[in-house]
Design a protein around this nucleic acid. Sequence first.
DNA 1: GTGGTCTAGACCACA
DNA 2: GTGGTCTAGACCACT
Lengths: 132, 132, 132, 132
Amino acid sequence: MDLIHLDNHSGVPIFRQIQDQIRQQILAGRLATGAQLSPVRDLAIQIRVNPMTVSKAYALLEAEGLLERRRGVGLFVAPLAPRQRDRDCRALLAEALGAAAASAVQMGIAEDEAMAIYRDLMREYSRRRDQR
Amino acid sequence: MDLIHLDNHSGVPIFRQIQDQIRQQILAGRLATGAQLSPVRDLAIQIRVNPMTVSKAYALLEAEGLLERRRGVGLFVAPLAPRQRDRDCRALLAEALGAAAASAVQMGIAEDEAMAIYRDLMREYSRRRDQR
Amino acid sequence: MDLIHLDNHSGVPIFRQIQDQIRQQILAGRLATGAQLSPVRDLAIQIRVNPMTVSKAYALLEAEGLLERRRGVGLFVAPLAPRQRDRDCRALLAEALGAAAASAVQMGIAEDEAMAIYRDLMREYSRRRDQR
Amino acid sequence: MDLIHLDNHSGVPIFRQIQDQIRQQILAGRLATGAQLSPVRDLAIQIRVNPMTVSKAYALLEAEGLLERRRGVGLFVAPLAPRQRDRDCRALLAEALGAAAASAVQMGIAEDEAMAIYRDLMREYSRRRDQR
DNA sequence: GTGGTCTAGACCACA
DNA sequence: GTGGTCTAGACCACT
């Protein structure tokens, strides 16, 4: 399981940051089906956060159907059909893009220019990622 | 001044929703330089919100330099150099696109596909807007 | 809002007891659409429980779509179409009856006898209720 | 001995699910007096559960007086007077129906309708059972 | 060992 | 005033 990176100044609740990052790791396939997640306490120590906060993030992911609890054993990535996974990915992306689409249209920025800005940002990110 | 649309379920603070929408109207040119904004009380009644909330949104926009307060008269859209306006638009858009770019890269969605999704969303929005 | 009755010995988590009872009050129509719920702190004091526990119950009911949050104002019973309400009631009842149906069949108790037992229990409850 | 079916999502402890299902098999007569139960390890492997969990279920059933332990030999279904058996069955059923009776009354569902729902569920179960 | 629940009390954002 | 979040630490149930 990849490291979780927290930003205390973003205004986004910590449990939400954890939840979002784990969800992405699952949808991106970096957390495979059946994989066991870090125990609540371990992750809590690792990212220096109260165990309850981690627990809350896990609970919400379980409610989303992405995690499965095995009592007394631990939490595991729930099986997810590849198609379902793809659909979830697209839905997630579309949601993230929604506000940006509205912005561009409202501000009268040309479709091509907006797409170019988006492309540049994606390249920027993938470059940064490859360097790591 | 266009109508403000609030979403109680989005988790975004109401004052922020007002602020964002007015800012966009200004940058999009639909609220021209020198135009007078609705008085706090009027807008508050119109969108059924506590006047304090509207006032807070206005104050933040004033702090951004987008509004000008003329005491005893009202609030007006501050003059804004076209270049400045364009730069602000792009910056705003880039910010809105940032998270979506990171998402697409992390989830391994191809650049082209992500851009296509974005394009579709923009067309969807402009179509909806034209219909009104 | 009716009193919430807690049973510390039932093994059912407190937040779940609160959640269940409020849900029933809503579905039974004793908490009408638009009614404001007791503030978290008030209810917490009234039933001698930690505010977080109440808050958790409220949050889960909101996730169910039965409650609506108005930021900084309070929590309210969400509008619910009468048909939807009826369907929810039946679903809730069917769920509660599921295990009992399986039991009766598995233990080979005749349909009529099982139904008679059920009828007697209902009469017992309504009698008790009327006395109050 | 019939198969034990476990549901990890029900919230009911696993040892409790095992215990309940074996109890029902005994009361239903599908596990006859004197019959030997599967050894702890065998059942544990069969239903993919920690042997300790099976052992706990067996121990609780022994405490209930439904099982008899013969040291070095195994566990057997204890003799049970038919009347006792019937009483246990009814008591078990009444317990399972208690919450459902309270629900129906509280939600104002008519006695007849509630009983009809219950009857339908029982028929549904017996049909499913006959198909197997 | 695992996760779940609860407490007491603090601080914050929102209206 | 409202609810939301987080902490630190306790206790419990399950495996």
